[in-house]
Nucleic acid binder design. Structure first.
Length: 566
RNA sequence: UGGGAAGUAGCCAAGUGGUAAGGCAACGGACUUUGACUCCGUCAUCCGUGGGUUCGAACCCCGCCUUCCCAGCCA
């Protein structure tokens, strides 16, 4: 991780307090330790897909909590099910976490590193009479599961310890087919909590594991594996999402019945929902595979790689995650809050540049042909240290189509015949008319400038309400601009179940070709961050597919528009 | 119907017996060479609901209502 990012994080305020911290405060002794150990958390993704903003919340909580208590946070790939996982995701996950600004030092682990220990624990449980080999098929187990008011059953529950021991070893040795046998914890077949009705803790999967190869053909289930992983890594607080609440008794059962180091404790919090998008891996995958978006890193996706490409900054996402808070209430945060956090960050840091997305030519009829003059303009009026750049001005320039109206409505303060407007940092110009094609479309706008107003000043003190951006028609670079909108037309696509694709917003991407950007933008490309404010329109970043010959900008977020047409 | 959890403004969210923080959104206004930013102001007589305890309740007690999660050999 770069020094710059580390410094950036150090300068940020400490993570806001929440109910988890209250619990930790109650857990730890005066020296800040929990059972003699530093507070130690972990972020344990399953390497089966890309990280999204929901994971960012968990990452900020896991790493942020460790930072707050001067503790540690591990990164661990939870790879206990080889049928679903792939190494291809591991590097992407690491990259995204680093990009977000967090680091695990040398504490990067795989759950599969503990397969031996897990096997040992399983044998221990069998020896204690707390686990048995069950020969029920998946279907049978389902049938024998009982229901809300009737207990489950298994004819194998009272199998002698020696028999289970032998069978389990044979399972490990590959003597049985997949699905023929499982190892089950002997807990409580009548529990109202189905997770405690003798849960399967080992199953047979005759498939090569991306880390352990063919060493194993039996694999531990999450509920059995996770507490062991946590214990082995000295985790003190195992933070996870709400749906694991009723797995906690099982987590504790494993901790209490196996010989393990430490007393990790599980605490659950609500996962993040954001409106007008979906967060489940399954649905995101469906959009990628169905061609509804252009890949996992499509700028419309809530994935971290998508947000990154869109122009979201790590800091804005960290701030967002910190400010939405942590609680146990299922909640859906409004997208506008995420946008606010981005604008806040970029307003402070992004270089201002003038770019015209819907160009229309403005001709200043009383300005000498062939003349060019220059103006110095601040890169960021909110931050003098960002300095100034030089832009050129001549007789013809491009202005935004929406900045001219032949017949203005009430309150419109841009260009219309007879009205004065300021060309940002250049001159005050007065509109004198326009030219239209046979379809009545305006093709050129005419104006006269006031030579006394160089720099946009009004020495006579007159007020000019409108200030518009422009680009010198003799000195600009051409660009393609991607404008994005919500991926879904409805606030809660999940409410449509598997039909969620039916409410996808088919206008979520609008591509604008032939946009005109001030030529000076090229000077920013090398060492400066590639996020810009296109004055009056929004924050944009250079897309990774840009080339020197073809610039592509993505609109990360528009500027707030306080102008109401009434 | 069994078990687990949660209900404070349009959306998040503090608050843990002493009289409802903050942010986003929205709406007014000031400022403005970005209709941005910034600044000022408005926005819950009330905390799902009905009782009870108390001098005093969003906080404690009892009942009810609503929502979410759980019957994978997924995580």
């Amino acid at each position: 991780m770069s020094d710059e990012i580390i410094k950036e994080i150090e300068n940020e305020e400490e993570m806001a307090s929440n109910f988890i911290h209250t619990m930790i405060d109650n857990d730890i002794s005066e020296d800040g330790n929990y059972y003699g150990k530093k507070v130690h958390t972990r972020f344990p993704p399953e390497p089966n897909g890309y990280l999204h903003i929901g994971h960012a919340k968990a990452i900020c909580i896991d790493f942020g909590t460790a930072q707050k208590y001067n503790g540690l946070c591990n990164l661990r790939m939870d790879d206990t099910n080889p049928t679903k996982e792939d190494v291809e995701y591991v590097d992407a996950i690491k990259e995204d976490i680093h990009w977000l600004g967090f680091d695990w030092d040398d504490r990067f682990y795989y759950a599969s590193e503990y397969f031996d220990k897990m096997y040992e624990c399983a044998v221990e449980l069998i020896n204690k009479g707390l686990a048995y080999v069950c020969e029920l098929s998946a279907q049978q187990m389902h049938d024998y599961r009982g229901d809300l008011s009737t207990p489950a059953t298994s004819p194998y529950r009272d199998r002698p310890i020696e028999e289970s021991l032998a069978l389990f070893e044979r399972m490990k040795n590959g003597e049985f087919e997949e699905g023929k046998m499982t190892l089950r914890a002997k807990i409580d077949l009548a529990s109202g909590n189905f997770n405690m009705r003798d849960p399967v803790i080992y199953r047979i999967n005759k498939i090569s594991h991306h880390r352990t190869g063919d060493k194993w053909c039996i694999y531990p289930m999450y509920d059995f594996a996770h507490p062991i992983e946590d214990a082995m890594e000295n985790i003190t607080h195992s933070l996870c999402s709400l749906e694991f609440e009723d797995h906690r008794p099982l987590y504790e059962w494993v901790i209490n019945n196996c010989t393990l180091p430490g007393n990790p404790r599980q605490i659950e919090f609500a996962r993040l929902g954001i409106n007008n998008t979906v967060m489940s891996k399954r649905k995101l995958r469906a959009m990628v595979e169905g061609g509804y978006v252009n890949g996992w890193d499509d700028p419309r996706m809530p994935t971290l790689c998508g947000l990154r490409r869109r122009g979201y900054t790590p800091r804005s996402i960290r701030n967002f995650c910190d400010r939405i808070g942590v609680s146990k209430v299922n909640s859906t945060v409004e997208y506008s809050f995420l946008e606010h956090c981005l604008r806040e960050d970029l307003n402070e840091r992004a270089m201002r540049v003038m770019a015209v997305i819907d160009p229309i030519k403005l001709i200043i009829t009383n300005y000498p042909e062939g003349k060019t003059e220059t103006f110095d303009i601040e890169n960021n009026p909110n931050n003098e240290d960002d300095g100034k750049r030089t832009i050129t001005f001549s007789r013809e320039c491009y202005i935004e189509g929406s900045d001219f109206l032949e017949e203005p409505f009430k309150g419109y303060q841009r260009l219309y015949p007879g009205n004065e407007v300021r060309l940002k940092s250049a001159y005050i110009v007065k509109c004198t008319g326009c030219k239209k094609d046979e379809n009545g479309i305006v093709t050129e706008v005419y104006a006269e400038y006031d030579p006394e107003t160089r720099g946009g000043n009004t020495p006579d003190g007159r007020k000019v309400r409108g200030t518009i951006h422009w680009v010198d028609a003799n000195n600009f670079v051409e660009a393609t601009v991607n404008l994005y909108d919500n991926l879904f037309k409805v606030p809660d696509p999940d409410a449509y179940g598997d039909d969620f694709l039916s409410c996808i917003n088919e206008k979520s991407l609008i591509v604008k070709e032939d946009c005109k950007v001030e030529a000076s933008i090229a000077t920013f490309f090398d060492d400066a961050p590639k996020s810009f404010q296109f004055m009056r329109t929004g924050y944009f970043c250079l897309d990774k597919d840009s080339t020197k010959d073809k610039l592509i900008f993505n609109r990360a977020v528009s500027l707030k528009d306080g102008f109401k047409k009434k």
